[in-house]
C-alpha cells in the first residue's frame, strides 16, 4: 500500500513530511497532491521534512522539482534533516544549488 506523505499549509509555507522512502510507490501520489497547490500564489516556501527519509529515487527527485516548478510562484525549496546519502543524491543530480538544506 503506497505510503502517504502528510502535507500541511501554514501561512506561506507548505510542509511535506516524507516517509522513509521516496520512490515510485509514493512520489506519484505526492505529485498529485502538489497539483492542488498549483494556484496558491502565496506559497513562498516548500519545506520537505526529510528526517525519516533514507532513500530517494529519481521519481522522488521529480516530485521535488515539481514542487519547485509548479507550486505557488517559484517557492524556495527547503530540505530539513536530510541524511548524507540523500544529500549525495541531490549533489550527484546537480540540484543542490536550488535547494536549501537545513539540519
Amino acid at each position: 500500500m503506497p505510503k502517504k506523505n502528510p502535507i500541511t499549509l501554514s501561512e506561506n509555507t507548505l510542509t511535506i513530511v516524507l516517509e522513509e522512502r521516496m520512490d515510485i510507490s509514493n512520489s506519484m501520489k505526492l505529485i498529485e497532491e502538489l497539483n492542488k497547490y498549483r494556484e496558491e500564489e502565496d506559497i513562498t516556501e516548500v519545506v520537505f521534512d526529510a528526517r525519516k527519509l533514507t532513500y530517494i529515487a529519481s521519481t522522488g527527485i521529480r516530485a521535488v522539482i515539481y514542487a519547485d516548478q509548479v507550486v505557488g510562484n517559484k517557492p524556495k525549496i527547503v530540505f530539513i534533516g536530510a541524511t548524507a546519502d540523500v544529500y549525495h543524491v541531490f549533489e550527484t543530480a546537480g540540484l543542490t544549488q536550488f535547494i536549501e538544506f537545513r539540519d
Binding site: Q69, T92, A93, G94, L95, Q97
Partner: peptide, 10 residues
Amino acid sequence: PAGENMPVGV
C-alpha cells in the same frame, strides 16, 4: 568528479 550540472529537462 560528479560535477554540478542539473539533469536535462529541469
